[in-house]
Design a protein around this nucleic acid. Structure first.
Lengths: 219, 219
DNA sequence: AAAAATATTTAAGCTCACTTAAAAATATTT
DNA sequence: AAATATTTTTAAGTGAGCTTAAATATTTTT
Protein backbone atom coordinates (compact mmCIF):
# COMPACT_ATOMS: atom_id res chain seq x y z
CA UNK A 1 0.00 0.00 0.00
CA UNK A 2 1.12 3.57 -0.68
CA UNK A 3 2.74 5.90 1.82
CA UNK A 4 -0.29 8.20 1.71
CA UNK A 5 -2.64 5.36 2.60
CA UNK A 6 -0.40 4.07 5.38
CA UNK A 7 -0.16 7.53 6.89
CA UNK A 8 -3.90 7.99 6.60
CA UNK A 9 -4.88 4.87 8.53
CA UNK A 10 -2.10 5.57 11.03
CA UNK A 11 -3.47 9.05 11.64
CA UNK A 12 -6.97 7.67 12.24
CA UNK A 13 -5.59 5.09 14.62
CA UNK A 14 -3.59 7.63 16.58
CA UNK A 15 -6.35 10.24 16.72
CA UNK A 16 -8.76 7.57 17.84
CA UNK A 17 -6.55 6.88 20.83
CA UNK A 18 -6.08 10.53 21.64
CA UNK A 19 -8.02 13.72 21.56
CA UNK A 20 -11.75 13.44 22.03
CA UNK A 21 -11.68 10.50 19.69
CA UNK A 22 -12.17 12.96 16.87
CA UNK A 23 -11.49 11.11 13.66
CA UNK A 24 -13.50 13.28 11.32
CA UNK A 25 -11.80 14.13 8.05
CA UNK A 26 -10.86 17.63 9.18
CA UNK A 27 -8.92 16.40 12.17
CA UNK A 28 -7.08 13.79 10.12
CA UNK A 29 -6.35 16.43 7.49
CA UNK A 30 -4.80 18.67 10.12
CA UNK A 31 -2.67 15.81 11.43
CA UNK A 32 -1.38 15.03 7.95
CA UNK A 33 -1.07 18.59 6.69
CA UNK A 34 -3.47 18.12 3.79
CA UNK A 35 -6.74 19.84 2.89
CA UNK A 36 -10.08 18.70 4.26
CA UNK A 37 -11.20 17.92 0.74
CA UNK A 38 -8.25 15.58 0.24
CA UNK A 39 -9.07 13.78 3.47
CA UNK A 40 -12.70 13.27 2.45
CA UNK A 41 -11.59 11.96 -0.93
CA UNK A 42 -9.15 9.55 0.63
CA UNK A 43 -11.71 8.37 3.18
CA UNK A 44 -14.16 7.49 0.42
CA UNK A 45 -11.49 5.64 -1.50
CA UNK A 46 -10.31 3.64 1.49
CA UNK A 47 -13.90 2.70 2.34
CA UNK A 48 -14.12 0.90 -1.01
CA UNK A 49 -10.98 -1.01 -0.04
CA UNK A 50 -12.53 -2.10 3.22
CA UNK A 51 -9.97 -0.24 5.32
CA UNK A 52 -12.50 2.00 7.06
CA UNK A 53 -16.19 2.76 7.44
CA UNK A 54 -17.27 6.01 5.91
CA UNK A 55 -20.55 7.79 6.45
CA UNK A 56 -21.05 11.39 5.48
CA UNK A 57 -20.31 13.86 8.27
CA UNK A 58 -19.45 11.06 10.69
CA UNK A 59 -16.26 9.93 12.39
CA UNK A 60 -14.01 7.68 10.35
CA UNK A 61 -13.78 4.20 11.87
CA UNK A 62 -11.09 1.74 10.89
CA UNK A 63 -12.17 -1.76 9.96
CA UNK A 64 -10.21 -4.70 11.37
CA UNK A 65 -8.21 -4.70 8.19
CA UNK A 66 -7.49 -0.98 8.54
CA UNK A 67 -6.53 -1.34 12.18
CA UNK A 68 -4.16 -4.14 11.31
CA UNK A 69 -2.49 -1.99 8.67
CA UNK A 70 -2.17 0.91 11.09
CA UNK A 71 -0.64 -1.27 13.77
CA UNK A 72 1.78 -2.76 11.29
CA UNK A 73 3.04 0.73 10.45
CA UNK A 74 3.15 1.71 14.11
CA UNK A 75 5.14 -1.44 14.84
CA UNK A 76 7.73 -0.57 12.22
CA UNK A 77 7.92 3.01 13.41
CA UNK A 78 8.56 2.03 17.00
CA UNK A 79 11.04 -0.71 16.10
CA UNK A 80 13.03 1.80 14.06
CA UNK A 81 12.96 4.23 16.98
CA UNK A 82 14.26 1.54 19.29
CA UNK A 83 17.01 0.52 16.88
CA UNK A 84 18.17 4.04 16.03
CA UNK A 85 18.12 4.96 19.71
CA UNK A 86 20.31 2.00 20.55
CA UNK A 87 22.83 2.44 17.76
CA UNK A 88 23.19 6.16 17.28
CA UNK A 89 23.57 9.29 19.30
CA UNK A 90 20.47 11.10 18.08
CA UNK A 91 17.79 13.11 19.88
CA UNK A 92 14.36 11.59 20.42
CA UNK A 93 13.01 14.10 17.95
CA UNK A 94 15.50 13.21 15.23
CA UNK A 95 14.83 9.53 15.82
CA UNK A 96 11.12 10.13 15.44
CA UNK A 97 11.64 12.03 12.22
CA UNK A 98 13.78 9.31 10.65
CA UNK A 99 11.40 6.55 11.76
CA UNK A 100 8.52 8.46 10.19
CA UNK A 101 10.14 7.89 6.80
CA UNK A 102 11.67 4.45 7.27
CA UNK A 103 8.43 2.89 8.56
CA UNK A 104 6.97 2.87 5.05
CA UNK A 105 9.90 1.15 3.38
CA UNK A 106 10.36 -1.76 5.72
CA UNK A 107 9.40 -5.32 4.87
CA UNK A 108 7.82 -7.52 7.51
CA UNK A 109 10.95 -9.64 7.30
CA UNK A 110 13.21 -6.72 8.18
CA UNK A 111 10.89 -5.58 10.97
CA UNK A 112 11.10 -9.03 12.51
CA UNK A 113 14.89 -9.01 12.22
CA UNK A 114 15.07 -5.65 13.98
CA UNK A 115 12.77 -6.90 16.71
CA UNK A 116 14.81 -10.05 17.18
CA UNK A 117 18.08 -8.09 17.24
CA UNK A 118 16.70 -5.89 20.02
CA UNK A 119 15.43 -8.86 22.02
CA UNK A 120 11.79 -8.33 21.05
CA UNK A 121 11.32 -5.19 23.12
CA UNK A 122 7.84 -4.28 24.33
CA UNK A 123 8.41 -0.53 24.41
CA UNK A 124 10.19 2.08 22.31
CA UNK A 125 12.37 4.89 23.72
CA UNK A 126 9.28 7.05 24.36
CA UNK A 127 7.70 4.23 26.33
CA UNK A 128 5.14 3.59 23.62
CA UNK A 129 4.22 -0.09 23.27
CA UNK A 130 5.47 -1.96 20.20
CA UNK A 131 2.77 -4.12 18.55
CA UNK A 132 3.86 -7.69 17.84
CA UNK A 133 4.08 -9.22 14.37
CA UNK A 134 0.34 -10.01 14.48
CA UNK A 135 -0.50 -6.39 15.19
CA UNK A 136 -1.37 -6.96 18.82
CA UNK A 137 -0.35 -4.87 21.79
CA UNK A 138 0.00 -7.39 24.57
CA UNK A 139 1.14 -5.08 27.34
CA UNK A 140 -1.43 -3.57 29.64
CA UNK A 141 -0.89 0.09 30.29
CA UNK A 142 -1.71 1.23 33.80
CA UNK A 143 0.18 4.47 33.52
CA UNK A 144 -1.44 7.84 34.23
CA UNK A 145 -0.75 11.39 33.13
CA UNK A 146 1.39 13.50 35.46
CA UNK A 147 -1.59 15.83 35.77
CA UNK A 148 -3.47 13.06 37.58
CA UNK A 149 -0.81 12.14 40.11
CA UNK A 150 -0.91 12.68 43.88
CA UNK A 151 1.21 15.09 45.87
CA UNK A 152 4.10 13.57 47.75
CA UNK A 153 4.28 10.39 45.73
CA UNK A 154 7.15 9.19 43.59
CA UNK A 155 6.55 7.87 40.08
CA UNK A 156 8.49 6.30 37.19
CA UNK A 157 8.23 7.95 33.80
CA UNK A 158 6.63 5.48 31.41
CA UNK A 159 5.71 7.45 28.29
CA UNK A 160 6.49 10.73 26.59
CA UNK A 161 3.59 11.06 24.16
CA UNK A 162 4.70 13.69 21.69
CA UNK A 163 6.68 14.30 18.58
CA UNK A 164 7.50 17.91 19.28
CA UNK A 165 11.13 18.96 19.21
CA UNK A 166 10.82 21.65 21.89
CA UNK A 167 9.16 19.21 24.25
CA UNK A 168 11.91 16.62 23.76
CA UNK A 169 14.64 19.20 24.15
CA UNK A 170 13.06 20.31 27.41
CA UNK A 171 12.80 16.70 28.59
CA UNK A 172 16.40 15.94 27.69
CA UNK A 173 17.65 19.02 29.55
CA UNK A 174 15.71 18.14 32.68
CA UNK A 175 16.24 14.41 32.92
CA UNK A 176 12.66 13.64 31.97
CA UNK A 177 13.43 10.34 30.38
CA UNK A 178 11.73 6.97 30.06
CA UNK A 179 12.45 4.99 33.24
CA UNK A 180 13.58 7.91 35.42
CA UNK A 181 11.81 8.63 38.69
CA UNK A 182 10.09 11.88 39.70
CA UNK A 183 8.63 13.12 42.95
CA UNK A 184 5.37 15.05 42.63
CA UNK A 185 5.90 17.77 45.24
CA UNK A 186 2.78 19.83 44.61
CA UNK A 187 -0.39 19.90 42.49
CA UNK A 188 -1.77 23.35 41.76
CA UNK A 189 -5.17 22.10 40.73
CA UNK A 190 -6.71 25.52 40.16
CA UNK A 191 -3.97 26.53 37.73
CA UNK A 192 -3.54 23.05 36.34
CA UNK A 193 0.14 23.04 37.14
CA UNK A 194 2.31 20.36 38.71
CA UNK A 195 5.52 20.82 40.63
CA UNK A 196 7.98 17.96 40.46
CA UNK A 197 11.38 17.11 41.85
CA UNK A 198 13.91 15.34 39.69
CA UNK A 199 17.66 15.04 40.12
CA UNK A 200 17.43 17.54 42.99
CA UNK A 201 15.83 20.11 40.74
CA UNK A 202 12.35 21.52 41.18
CA UNK A 203 10.32 22.13 38.04
CA UNK A 204 6.88 23.61 37.58
CA UNK A 205 5.05 22.10 34.63
CA UNK A 206 1.84 23.31 33.06
CA UNK A 207 -0.88 21.12 31.62
CA UNK A 208 0.52 21.11 28.08
CA UNK A 209 3.31 18.96 29.39
CA UNK A 210 1.72 17.10 32.33
CA UNK A 211 -0.97 15.72 30.01
CA UNK A 212 1.57 14.02 27.74
CA UNK A 213 4.05 12.77 30.34
CA UNK A 214 2.80 9.43 31.63
CA UNK A 215 4.03 7.70 34.77
CA UNK A 216 3.58 4.58 36.84
CA UNK A 217 3.47 4.32 40.62
CA UNK A 218 6.61 2.96 42.15
CA UNK A 219 6.14 -0.64 43.28
CA UNK B 1 13.73 14.85 -4.81
CA UNK B 2 11.28 12.09 -5.58
CA UNK B 3 12.06 8.39 -5.53
CA UNK B 4 11.48 8.18 -9.29
CA UNK B 5 14.04 10.92 -9.95
CA UNK B 6 16.60 9.41 -7.57
CA UNK B 7 16.25 6.03 -9.23
CA UNK B 8 16.53 7.59 -12.66
CA UNK B 9 19.83 9.37 -12.06
CA UNK B 10 21.12 6.31 -10.21
CA UNK B 11 20.31 4.11 -13.21
CA UNK B 12 22.16 6.47 -15.55
CA UNK B 13 25.13 6.49 -13.23
CA UNK B 14 25.24 2.72 -12.95
CA UNK B 15 24.70 2.07 -16.66
CA UNK B 16 27.38 4.59 -17.46
CA UNK B 17 29.85 2.54 -15.43
CA UNK B 18 28.75 -0.74 -16.94
CA UNK B 19 27.59 -2.08 -20.23
CA UNK B 20 28.88 -0.39 -23.32
CA UNK B 21 28.22 2.89 -21.61
CA UNK B 22 24.73 2.76 -23.06
CA UNK B 23 22.69 5.41 -21.26
CA UNK B 24 20.08 5.96 -23.94
CA UNK B 25 16.51 6.16 -22.65
CA UNK B 26 15.66 2.62 -23.73
CA UNK B 27 18.43 1.10 -21.66
CA UNK B 28 17.51 3.14 -18.59
CA UNK B 29 13.88 2.20 -19.12
CA UNK B 30 14.79 -1.47 -19.13
CA UNK B 31 16.82 -1.06 -15.93
CA UNK B 32 13.91 0.64 -14.17
CA UNK B 33 11.12 -1.48 -15.64
CA UNK B 34 9.31 1.46 -17.23
CA UNK B 35 8.40 2.23 -20.86
CA UNK B 36 10.79 3.95 -23.23
CA UNK B 37 8.35 6.81 -23.54
CA UNK B 38 8.40 7.34 -19.78
CA UNK B 39 12.18 7.42 -19.79
CA UNK B 40 12.28 10.02 -22.58
CA UNK B 41 9.74 12.12 -20.70
CA UNK B 42 11.72 11.95 -17.50
CA UNK B 43 14.98 12.73 -19.29
CA UNK B 44 13.49 15.91 -20.74
CA UNK B 45 12.16 16.95 -17.38
CA UNK B 46 15.44 16.36 -15.57
CA UNK B 47 17.32 18.30 -18.22
CA UNK B 48 15.31 21.39 -17.26
CA UNK B 49 16.42 20.81 -13.66
CA UNK B 50 20.05 20.69 -14.68
CA UNK B 51 20.48 17.08 -13.59
CA UNK B 52 21.45 15.78 -17.01
CA UNK B 53 22.17 16.80 -20.60
CA UNK B 54 19.54 15.71 -23.08
CA UNK B 55 19.87 15.71 -26.85
CA UNK B 56 17.44 13.83 -29.04
CA UNK B 57 18.56 10.29 -29.85
CA UNK B 58 21.77 10.70 -27.86
CA UNK B 59 23.12 9.13 -24.68
CA UNK B 60 21.95 10.74 -21.45
CA UNK B 61 24.82 12.39 -19.60
CA UNK B 62 24.58 13.38 -15.97
CA UNK B 63 25.62 16.90 -15.05
CA UNK B 64 27.83 17.40 -11.99
CA UNK B 65 24.68 18.05 -10.03
CA UNK B 66 23.10 14.84 -11.32
CA UNK B 67 26.22 12.81 -10.59
CA UNK B 68 26.28 14.18 -7.08
CA UNK B 69 22.68 13.15 -6.54
CA UNK B 70 23.34 9.67 -7.91
CA UNK B 71 26.38 9.20 -5.69
CA UNK B 72 24.44 10.38 -2.69
CA UNK B 73 21.84 7.68 -3.29
CA UNK B 74 24.52 5.08 -3.97
CA UNK B 75 26.22 6.07 -0.73
CA UNK B 76 23.04 5.54 1.26
CA UNK B 77 22.36 2.23 -0.47
CA UNK B 78 25.79 0.86 0.33
CA UNK B 79 25.80 2.14 3.88
CA UNK B 80 22.48 0.39 4.49
CA UNK B 81 23.87 -2.79 2.99
CA UNK B 82 26.86 -2.61 5.28
CA UNK B 83 24.72 -1.95 8.35
CA UNK B 84 22.10 -4.62 7.64
CA UNK B 85 24.85 -7.11 6.86
CA UNK B 86 26.54 -6.41 10.17
CA UNK B 87 23.42 -6.49 12.33
CA UNK B 88 21.20 -9.14 10.81
CA UNK B 89 21.41 -12.61 9.40
CA UNK B 90 20.12 -11.85 5.92
CA UNK B 91 21.26 -12.96 2.47
CA UNK B 92 23.11 -10.50 0.23
CA UNK B 93 20.09 -10.47 -2.01
CA UNK B 94 17.67 -9.63 0.80
CA UNK B 95 20.02 -6.95 2.03
CA UNK B 96 20.16 -5.45 -1.44
CA UNK B 97 16.39 -5.45 -1.71
CA UNK B 98 15.88 -3.70 1.63
CA UNK B 99 18.60 -1.14 0.87
CA UNK B 100 16.93 -0.39 -2.45
CA UNK B 101 13.94 0.97 -0.52
CA UNK B 102 15.65 2.52 2.49
CA UNK B 103 18.14 4.52 0.39
CA UNK B 104 15.41 6.99 -0.59
CA UNK B 105 14.19 7.70 2.93
CA UNK B 106 17.47 8.43 4.61
CA UNK B 107 18.60 11.89 5.64
CA UNK B 108 22.22 12.90 5.19
CA UNK B 109 22.41 13.09 8.96
CA UNK B 110 21.35 9.47 9.37
CA UNK B 111 23.68 8.33 6.59
CA UNK B 112 26.58 9.97 8.40
CA UNK B 113 25.57 8.32 11.67
CA UNK B 114 25.48 4.91 10.01
CA UNK B 115 28.88 5.52 8.45
CA UNK B 116 30.36 6.63 11.75
CA UNK B 117 28.86 3.64 13.58
CA UNK B 118 30.49 1.29 11.07
CA UNK B 119 33.85 3.04 11.32
CA UNK B 120 33.49 4.86 8.01
CA UNK B 121 33.89 1.75 5.86
CA UNK B 122 35.20 2.13 2.32
CA UNK B 123 33.38 -0.91 0.92
CA UNK B 124 30.01 -2.58 1.30
CA UNK B 125 29.49 -6.36 1.64
CA UNK B 126 29.64 -6.79 -2.14
CA UNK B 127 32.97 -5.02 -2.24
CA UNK B 128 31.44 -1.98 -3.90
CA UNK B 129 33.04 1.30 -2.81
CA UNK B 130 31.02 3.61 -0.57
CA UNK B 131 31.13 7.28 -1.67
CA UNK B 132 31.98 9.71 1.11
CA UNK B 133 29.66 12.47 2.33
CA UNK B 134 30.86 14.74 -0.49
CA UNK B 135 29.93 12.17 -3.11
CA UNK B 136 33.51 11.16 -3.83
CA UNK B 137 34.88 7.67 -4.24
CA UNK B 138 38.40 7.96 -2.88
CA UNK B 139 39.48 4.35 -3.26
CA UNK B 140 41.25 3.29 -6.40
CA UNK B 141 39.98 0.06 -7.80
CA UNK B 142 42.65 -2.13 -9.34
CA UNK B 143 40.51 -5.24 -9.33
CA UNK B 144 39.88 -7.28 -12.48
CA UNK B 145 37.13 -9.62 -13.59
CA UNK B 146 37.73 -13.33 -12.99
CA UNK B 147 37.50 -13.77 -16.75
CA UNK B 148 40.74 -11.79 -17.11
CA UNK B 149 42.82 -13.64 -14.54
CA UNK B 150 45.84 -15.87 -15.16
CA UNK B 151 46.00 -19.62 -14.71
CA UNK B 152 47.78 -20.82 -11.59
CA UNK B 153 47.47 -17.59 -9.69
CA UNK B 154 45.59 -16.99 -6.45
CA UNK B 155 43.29 -13.99 -6.04
CA UNK B 156 41.17 -12.32 -3.38
CA UNK B 157 37.51 -11.69 -4.18
CA UNK B 158 36.94 -7.95 -4.13
CA UNK B 159 33.52 -7.38 -5.71
CA UNK B 160 30.37 -9.28 -6.54
CA UNK B 161 28.70 -6.94 -9.03
CA UNK B 162 25.13 -8.13 -9.23
CA UNK B 163 21.77 -7.94 -7.60
CA UNK B 164 20.52 -11.30 -8.78
CA UNK B 165 19.26 -13.73 -6.17
CA UNK B 166 20.35 -16.87 -8.01
CA UNK B 167 23.87 -15.53 -8.38
CA UNK B 168 24.10 -14.70 -4.67
CA UNK B 169 22.68 -18.06 -3.67
CA UNK B 170 25.29 -19.76 -5.85
CA UNK B 171 28.05 -17.60 -4.33
CA UNK B 172 26.91 -18.28 -0.78
CA UNK B 173 26.82 -22.03 -1.40
CA UNK B 174 30.32 -22.07 -2.84
CA UNK B 175 32.16 -19.71 -0.51
CA UNK B 176 32.41 -17.00 -3.13
CA UNK B 177 32.42 -14.14 -0.68
CA UNK B 178 34.06 -10.75 -0.41
CA UNK B 179 37.56 -11.26 0.99
CA UNK B 180 37.87 -14.99 0.31
CA UNK B 181 40.71 -16.32 -1.82
CA UNK B 182 40.41 -18.36 -5.00
CA UNK B 183 42.92 -20.21 -7.13
CA UNK B 184 42.38 -19.94 -10.88
CA UNK B 185 43.28 -23.45 -12.02
CA UNK B 186 42.38 -23.17 -15.69
CA UNK B 187 41.16 -20.66 -18.27
CA UNK B 188 39.19 -22.17 -21.15
CA UNK B 189 39.54 -19.15 -23.38
CA UNK B 190 37.74 -20.63 -26.36
CA UNK B 191 34.64 -21.44 -24.33
CA UNK B 192 35.00 -18.40 -22.11
CA UNK B 193 34.96 -20.51 -19.00
CA UNK B 194 37.12 -20.35 -15.91
CA UNK B 195 37.95 -23.17 -13.52
CA UNK B 196 38.64 -22.17 -9.96
CA UNK B 197 39.56 -23.84 -6.71
CA UNK B 198 38.02 -22.67 -3.49
CA UNK B 199 37.79 -24.40 -0.12
CA UNK B 200 39.15 -27.54 -1.76
CA UNK B 201 36.33 -27.57 -4.30
CA UNK B 202 36.76 -27.19 -8.01
CA UNK B 203 34.17 -25.11 -9.80
CA UNK B 204 33.72 -24.29 -13.46
CA UNK B 205 32.25 -20.85 -14.11
CA UNK B 206 30.97 -19.45 -17.37
CA UNK B 207 31.32 -15.85 -18.51
CA UNK B 208 28.01 -14.71 -17.07
CA UNK B 209 29.58 -15.14 -13.66
CA UNK B 210 33.29 -14.52 -14.30
CA UNK B 211 32.47 -11.09 -15.74
CA UNK B 212 30.81 -9.91 -12.53
CA UNK B 213 33.14 -11.49 -9.97
CA UNK B 214 36.05 -9.13 -9.45
CA UNK B 215 39.31 -10.03 -7.73
CA UNK B 216 42.66 -8.59 -6.71
CA UNK B 217 46.03 -10.26 -6.94
CA UNK B 218 47.35 -11.52 -3.66
CA UNK B 219 50.09 -9.27 -2.30
C1' DA C 1 -35.01 28.56 17.74
C1' DA C 2 -32.61 31.53 14.69
C1' DA C 3 -28.27 33.36 13.33
C1' DA C 4 -23.52 32.87 12.88
C1' DA C 5 -19.54 30.18 12.71
C1' DT C 6 -17.35 26.04 11.51
C1' DA C 7 -16.74 21.68 9.17
C1' DT C 8 -17.65 18.64 5.40
C1' DT C 9 -18.55 17.57 0.83
C1' DT C 10 -18.70 18.34 -4.09
C1' DA C 11 -16.69 20.03 -8.26
C1' DA C 12 -13.14 21.33 -11.17
C1' DG C 13 -8.39 21.31 -11.97
C1' DC C 14 -3.38 20.48 -11.18
C1' DT C 15 1.23 17.72 -11.23
C1' DC C 16 3.75 13.49 -11.25
C1' DA C 17 4.85 9.31 -13.13
C1' DC C 18 3.43 6.34 -15.64
C1' DT C 19 0.78 3.83 -20.03
C1' DT C 20 -0.21 2.52 -25.20
C1' DA C 21 -0.13 3.62 -30.06
C1' DA C 22 1.67 5.86 -33.89
C1' DA C 23 5.27 8.69 -36.16
C1' DA C 24 10.06 9.67 -36.90
C1' DA C 25 14.82 8.77 -36.61
C1' DT C 26 18.67 5.66 -36.18
C1' DA C 27 21.04 1.10 -36.63
C1' DT C 28 21.54 -3.23 -38.70
C1' DT C 29 21.29 -6.55 -42.19
C1' DT C 30 21.52 -7.96 -46.78
C1' DA D 1 22.97 1.82 -50.64
C1' DA D 2 18.43 -0.09 -49.90
C1' DA D 3 15.49 -2.62 -47.15
C1' DT D 4 14.43 -4.04 -42.69
C1' DA D 5 14.52 -3.94 -37.86
C1' DT D 6 15.02 -1.48 -33.78
C1' DT D 7 14.88 2.73 -30.94
C1' DT D 8 13.42 7.02 -29.82
C1' DT D 9 10.14 10.48 -29.77
C1' DT D 10 5.57 12.47 -29.89
C1' DA D 11 0.79 12.42 -28.72
C1' DA D 12 -3.02 11.29 -26.07
C1' DG D 13 -4.67 9.39 -21.94
C1' DT D 14 -4.75 7.37 -16.94
C1' DG D 15 -4.79 7.16 -11.71
C1' DA D 16 -2.98 8.84 -7.36
C1' DG D 17 -2.91 12.45 -4.43
C1' DC D 18 -3.17 16.70 -3.99
C1' DT D 19 -5.24 21.90 -4.52
C1' DT D 20 -8.86 25.88 -4.31
C1' DA D 21 -13.57 27.52 -4.47
C1' DA D 22 -18.28 26.96 -3.81
C1' DA D 23 -22.22 24.42 -1.97
C1' DT D 24 -24.14 21.97 1.79
C1' DA D 25 -24.54 20.23 6.36
C1' DT D 26 -23.51 20.51 11.23
C1' DT D 27 -22.33 22.80 15.48
C1' DT D 28 -22.06 26.64 18.43
C1' DT D 29 -23.44 30.96 20.02
C1' DT D 30 -26.71 34.28 21.10
Amino acid sequence: MSIAVENFVKAIYKNGKRDNNDTKPGNIAKELGISNAAATDMAKKLATKDLLHYQKYQELKLTDKGTKMALNVVRKHRLWEALLFKLFDLSLHDIHREAELLEHQTSDLLANKISEYLGNPKFDPHGDPIPNADGEITTTDSSIALSNTKEGKTYIISRLMSDDKEFFDFCAQNGLKYGNSVLVSKQFSKNKMTQISIHNNTILLNEDFTSIIYVNEQD
